[in-house]
Design a protein around this nucleic acid. Structure first.
Lengths: 339, 339
DNA sequence: TTGAAAGCGCTAACAG
DNA sequence: CTGTTAGCGCTTTCAA
């Protein structure tokens, strides 16, 4: 039995009950300050009694805005959903928006039909969108930026042809901080496990590492590439160890990879930090639960998510916002970087 | 400068271009089979040329359905967002819905204003809702079940007064399986770290553990309570060790807690599994990355999320669905349960 | 098989 | 300060 949809009270009903016009009810609902106080009270009473809730679709249609914001996640990224970083960004955005009139719609961008997402976005179904790209070059979205307020999480690879709003962390600086802390314990043979070479964050972190190494007057050791997952950290570390290069310190571009690498290091009979010092990025459960706990650079993903949401909302409201917002990072010294 | 919203082509425009009425275009868009083939072609051509996308709000208003589904997360749960289990459920639901005409709205149920969420849900803003309750008794939502198709993830504590649709795993059976595997190695002094006592899943798992222990003719050891996080696992384990009880095996109600417990066990100079065998539930990165890797019962959270979404959609479409769907679990033997 | 017309529930000028 | 009057873009009888 197709449950009959319980009929919601309409604005009209409230108007009748309060003895005013629909327009007035609408004004009260929308918090206009040009309604006499006693009328406001009467209307609010009627609203409460009828348990009235405005109809979103009707409102959207009338005002030409949807009050909803999309959070776009490329399908490839969705597979990395278990990455605490993403979960936190999403959480931050959702929490922030829950304090506004906006609703968050989760959109998985299927790779089989890439136009589906952009059609949806362009179709006036949302007022703005947050693009969370783990992977690659998202030039596909850049074009959309012309027709809709878009905010990217993390620097997209595509060249910044203006109008591209980004909330990012200073990955290079973060990597430099981590590496410096590690080298300060007198290490001479640093290596790194980098991230996917088509990701801005990965490249920036690698660059930061190399800068720190260079400034310390040390030679650049071998580089292994992972994809930010623990498994990839393991194989990268195996590769590094097999390379025969002398290694006394490791900067891993993500805590998950550092975590994976540590298992390989232990299996090889080496100790952290005495044999190999480690520093990384991300203060997640992997960093905290490793033993020794990982010296890392925290990047408050939750705040980043909240900031992204805040920025779209501001852009939707026509406020001016800087195109590039850099979130602060914090070095957290724990055991893994040595003494 | 408040970017002027680029005007989308309307149905009317398509109609003009195709030389038909709006009604016909609507029929084509909605896949009616009562439109002549050549007319369909003409309309589709016009749609493509204009890059027309139907307006969601208008459609909702006209048909009285929103094509969107809410995913409700209690704020308390949101804090546990980093729990890979939740992330996976959400991912599964989002992925499934991306193949349908429905959109997923993420709703954080604020505790400061609990009515906000239920008002939103009751306000006809969504066609159905998925309730993901980590915590406690959600009787608050049970009442809503009368006015909206609701599907719960995990058995809610409230008594099942019908009309409560649930997609759950057989937690008791899962716990029993894990415990049995662990006891089979000849352990005589099992203890458990349970979850929050106001959660169905936690209670069921504890019951499953107790059954297995009882069936093995063993005495029930002490029980410590955690909240499924690694940290709580640590303190629970410390408590257990401090209790002075003889312990040679541990069933932890979540891999995260098992992971935390292992650190305490190691600190106490004990070995897993020789001194203490461990079995748990959840095949997440914690289970896989512990050393030794954890013997556990996997519960495919992603599939559970997809199933939840599937069930709401079916209920929205008026199809009949069983009230209780139990997802299968799978025992995964790894090192931690002993030999 | 198609078109005309009447709304869906709300907001937004424009008067008063 | 409040009511009247048009729509927003689409679906949906009802006729033709």
């Amino acid at each position: 039995m197709p449950e009959p949809r319980k009929q919601q009270p309409t604005l009209e009903l409230v108007a009748e009950r309060a003895g005013v016009s629909r327009a007035t009810v609408s004004r009260v609902v929308n918090g206009s300050d040009k309604v006499k106080a006693d009328v406001v009270r009467a209307v609010e009473k009627a609203i409460a009694e009828l348990n009235y809730v405005p109809n979103r679709a009707a409102r959207s249609l009338a005002q030409g805005r949807t009050n909803s914001i999309a959070l776009v996640i490329p399908e490839s990224t969705a597979k990395f959903f278990a990455d605490p970083y993403f979960a936190s960004v999403i959480q931050g955005a959702a929490m922030y928006l829950s304090t506004t009139e906006f609703t968050l719609s989760l959109l998985i961008a299927t790779e089989s039909d890439p136009t589906k997402t952009s059609r949806y976005l362009r179709g006036g179904n949302v007022d703005g969108a947050l693009i969370l790209s783990h992977h690659a070059d998202d030039s596909s979205y850049s074009e959309l930026a012309g027709s809709l307020p878009l905010v990217f999480g993390g620097r997209p690879m595509s060249n910044e042809n203006g109008n591209v709003f980004v909330v990012d962390v200073d990955n290079a600086a973060a990597a430099r901080k981590a590496t410096e802390a590690m080298l300060k314990t007198g290490r001479k043979h640093p290596v790194t496990i980098s991230g996917p070479q088509n990701m801005g964050a990965a490249i920036d972190r690698q660059r930061g590492f190399e800068q720190a190494v260079h400034e310390a007057g040390l030679p650049a050791g071998p580089v292994a590439v992972g994809d930010f997952t623990p498994d990839s950290g393991e194989s990268a570390m195996r590769e590094l160890l097999a390379s025969g290069a002398k290694i006394d310190s490791l900067f891993a571009a993500s805590a998950q990879m550092a975590f994976g690498a540590m298992k390989v290091i232990a299996d090889a009979g080496l100790m952290v930090p005495s044999d190999i010092a480690i520093a990384t990025i991300d203060d997640d459960s992997f960093a905290r639960n490793a033993s020794p706990a990982l010296t890392t650079v925290a990047q408050n993903a939750e705040e980043q998510g909240a900031k992204m949401a805040e920025v779209v909302v501001q852009r939707i409201n026509g406020e001016s916002v800087p195109e590039r917002i850099i979130m602060p990072t914090k070095l957290i010294l724990r055991g893994s970087h040595g003494v």
